[in-house]
Design a protein around this nucleic acid. Sequence first.
DNA 1: CTGAAAGCGCTTACAG
DNA 2: CTGAAAGCGCTTACAG
Lengths: 394, 394
Amino acid sequence: MARVTVADVADEAGVSRVTASKVLRGGEGVSPSTTQRVLDAAAALGYGREQSASGEGKRVTIADIASAVGLSKGSVSFALNGQAGISPENREKILETARQLGWRPHSAARALSSSQSKAIGLVLARDVDTLGSEPYFMRLIAGIEAVLSKESIVMLFQTVPSIEAEMAVYDDWWSERRIDGLLLNDLRVDDPRLPYLQGLGIPSVFAGLREGSGTVSAVFHEEAPGVEETVLHLRDLGHRSIGRVAGPAEFAHIAERGQAFARLCSELGIEHYESIETDYSMEQGAEATRYLLARPERPTALVYDNDIMALAGLREAQATGLSIPQDLSIVAWDDSLFCQASSPSLTAVARDIRAFGEQAATSLLDLIRSGAPDTVREPPGRIVARDSTAPPPS
Amino acid sequence: MARVTVADVADEAGVSRVTASKVLRGGEGVSPSTTQRVLDAAAALGYGREQSASGEGKRVTIADIASAVGLSKGSVSFALNGQAGISPENREKILETARQLGWRPHSAARALSSSQSKAIGLVLARDVDTLGSEPYFMRLIAGIEAVLSKESIVMLFQTVPSIEAEMAVYDDWWSERRIDGLLLNDLRVDDPRLPYLQGLGIPSVFAGLREGSGTVSAVFHEEAPGVEETVLHLRDLGHRSIGRVAGPAEFAHIAERGQAFARLCSELGIEHYESIETDYSMEQGAEATRYLLARPERPTALVYDNDIMALAGLREAQATGLSIPQDLSIVAWDDSLFCQASSPSLTAVARDIRAFGEQAATSLLDLIRSGAPDTVREPPGRIVARDSTAPPPS
DNA sequence: CTGAAAGCGCTTACAG
DNA sequence: CTGAAAGCGCTTACAG
């Protein structure tokens, strides 16, 4: 793709190079019809576009548009931003010329003068293998971006090893004015990020938080309903002893599940129940499984807080000679393709994570615009019965 | 966190508010020792930091530093950027003052005047469930960011439904000067993105490309060695008929694996071999498995192009009453936690994806700096033997 | 080694 | 509805 030159445009339009150059760089002293002809030729050849995109040559700016249409930069800016205060004819003329010249806003110039970066940030503090094996995050991201891309807002993304590193990233991004707001995940019990965000005053949406305040909005769903469906499902099958292989209790949603699990088991007539905390890993999932299966009130059903532990537990149970689901029922919290691909397929609690991501992004944009924090409750998870749950052995 | 005011600083430093204000806003007419005292107090209280981070109040700029130390903005800029052309003493004084005032660069201002956004872009055109189930991408991202974060370079991330949408994003980001360069994945046979990037002139690193040129660098690894290890492993176990459940052949690395597979099977004495193309999905993985197991020269070993298909194939085979690995050996290409968690665990081809990501990012930064495209070859995948491979039934 | 000034490309009061 | 100008916070020649 050779670069399109003024000479090319001149030839295409059938005018002199001097005339073409005049139109392309300013537009004074050339008749309207000739101006139009040159601009059409430029558009056809992709002259402006190439210029603006290639990095070589001069970038098309609002000054170029202004002189092409014979109006001020201020008017051009108004028209381009859809603001009131400019006549319909001039607006149309400006828009058309901008299109023809291939003008595109310079994000840094806008950010500098408007104090808005049109970017939001997402930082994930989990180890890479957890991130890579949990479908949650990619779905969340897909939901977020479905909303952002409509508004030409961009997402900065980073993974970090710890929550401290996460906060350091927020400080950097915010103080360098890289972002207008933040999306947070994995709320902890007494999460240090919350006061940190409030202190810095960063507009944020915290997934899992129950109530927005200050500059932080909340988007969440209840854990209890999914737990209740699970316990009911197992009780109705006849189970009276249930073990739970839990994620880290420092996560607020895990702690909440744990409380709901204990309360509901007790209320719904489960005679024995027990939770074992793990770090979410395959190894600890297998270990907790071994431990629970060796208990005096050996559980006939096991519930896991993520899919990789459920799979590891399945493997562990099968290795000890158990048949699933005849000898032991298994439920995974957070459905994934792997729950379907395993043998037997795993009964799991499923949520619409993509919708959750969309809501989180929508809330963030609202917050950035309005400055007022909000609280949104999303639908809870629901159980999807598959082949890994059945009545307990008699 | 209440905002730190000039009055607070004055109290802390034991000077009048007028004096504190003078120092904090300019520094003229105040003795060096008093100036120092006030700046120390400000630093202790986090005055500058709060100012620069909170968004309220005036941001600390290089002009503030300049008047505080009594030098020009240009000198301050030089010092802050580590450029030559300023005396050691003044450099030190500027750096110290900047630190005390909590100055942070404004990314947009820098981007506008330096024509560098200090951001790179990554767009993934795969459906969300594939992305969420393949550990590849998160590992790649972790590797990329390990390099970027050292240089305070930020990553824009987006998922899109198609390769056309992907190119549209590149056009947007580049023409708005959002990014300095791009990282590309999933090279296609005759990939349209390559000429597109070259046309736009975007500095890019294309993973999988065999040779850099123009503004595009290449980072790749050979597929053949991993294929060879796999075929050798199976042959040495005694297998003479191998089936392959392949990913989409439009991907260059899949096409290459396919060619290597046919060539190596033939060279290494495998009597029957066959590849079936799929879309990477669980469903088609299961379907291809059924098909291959029904062939006249029924394969005794099956090789899969991703982990989810391998798992689906394992399930399918077990459902038809086969024991793995006694009746059928299975190998997954691209190892993951799920290959370890399955029962039996899956023999798989593993690569150091994180290192690959680091190299890709390093190459991109080099390219952005130098303008010269490069080509880097990374180590190929190696087979990791687990429980899913054994001699064929006799 | 240092200063004064122009410029990056926008937005936004301020006048008319 | 429109124009002229200042300003956002830096970098970068250009002089000395």
